[in-house]
Design a protein around this nucleic acid. Structure first.
Lengths: 208, 208
DNA sequence: TCAATATGTCTACGACTGTAGATAGCGCGT
DNA sequence: ACGCGCTATCTACAGTCGTAGACATATTGA
């Protein structure tokens, strides 16, 4: 009790880097759960334990903050590397597990779904998808039309997230995970294979 | 010029049914293009050519209006009937055509995508999907797990709408429609077929 | 130790939201 | 033809939004 004021807030030490990080972390949560328009600056900063104006100080505006959130959210690989042949099943399994009920994860697809409709956020989201997830998955798939086929996979992924988690239809919410994995894998199979008879150049597919 | 006042507004005749219909039609457009939260009551009623309070008069509230819009939007069949065997290709083709760039149609999937994230609209959207599209497609597909497989088809459909129209990624926006149809049909094929060896009861699949 | 500066808060503004209540005026049955 | 009632508008309210500017305080270099 000599130095610290025990009650109320912990009275966090003034540190720009720490505060910036706290806001960013809070924003990932709020934007993912409520979407770009649904998450207010006061809501975000309250979670971070700072004042609302800190967003404008550190990120210029709400849009600036959102852009950094998208970059961070899409940064780490969503589906870790897998063998080229077993890729559909690996993706399907991860998808089924992550979208299971009561598994509210901070998935970038949730961020995408809940923010894409907002015109202020649409461009930012598109750039994030194309440069991060799309390119990575295209590298994993490889072959001709890799990007197109990758984005069809993303379409199924996003749609599954939408139906199962955001909307929450009964049939998809109550299905057995293994059965769902089978069906999803079957749907992903056609786009994982080279369509034309052209030779598939084996890329190393480092990260995923 | 004897009766009608030619200038300014057409000075619509006072008719409750006509006004209600005008609001409903305008709301379908606005909600589909901007989502539930993005479409304001003043915006909707301005398009309908009436005052903002008319929404509360005829629909109780913005939510009430949205519920009717969902019902109407999901009412007519999205994909007209097709032979059971050619169903994947029919769906794929319709999907590819409807999501083509510069084809801003008033599709219920757009309404869904842009409104599902809003907590006030989520329940209404879910009920609309389950009772209308889901049930209809499940009837078309038939067999065991019809509802589950139908909703996986809806997931791919919604995801394609999202990626191609709402987000607008380059790879999906610039692809040839026939090629896209092929890929989508291939992805839909697995869920159109009966998985188990169980006999598929042939339902008449009247509407679709 | 003291002051310059980085850091954070407070207040407030203008624009917007959905909606309640009171008021005006056209249409139809009589 | 007239007045009642339905139809539509106007004004206003309480709330939220993002953010600008002025102010307070902790931190750190000299």
């Amino acid at each position: 009790m000599l130095i610290s004021m025990s009650a109320a807030q912990p009275a966090r030490r003034r540190d720009a880097a720490v505060t910036r990080e706290a806001i960013l972390a809070a924003a990932v949560i709020e934007f993912t759960e409520n979407g770009y328009a649904g998450a207010g600056v006061r809501q975000i900063t309250e979670r971070a334990g700072v004042s609302a104006m800190m967003i404008n100080r550190y990120f210029g505006s709400k849009q600036g903050l959102f852009a950094e959130v998208v970059d961070r959210s899409f940064g780490p690989p969503t589906v870790v590397g897998a063998e080229r042949s077993g890729l559909p099943r690996a993706i399907a399994q991860a998808l089924a597990e992550n979208t299971a009920p009561d598994t509210e994860r901070l998935d970038p697809f949730l961020l995408t779904l809940r923010s894409a409709s907002d015109p202020e956020a649409a461009d930012i989201v598109r750039r994030g998808i194309e440069t991060h997830v799309g390119a990575r998955l295209a590298g994993l798939i490889g072959g001709s039309e890799a990007e197109l086929r990758a984005q069809l996979g993303l379409a199924l992924t996003a749609g599954t997230w939408l139906m199962r988690t955001v909307i929450g239809t009964h049939a998809l919410a109550g299905v057995d995970n293994e059965r769902l994995t089978e069906l999803l894998a079957a749907m992903l199979e056609p786009i994982a294979q080279e369509a034309d008879a052209g030779p598939a150049p084996v890329r190393d597919a480092s990260a995923g």
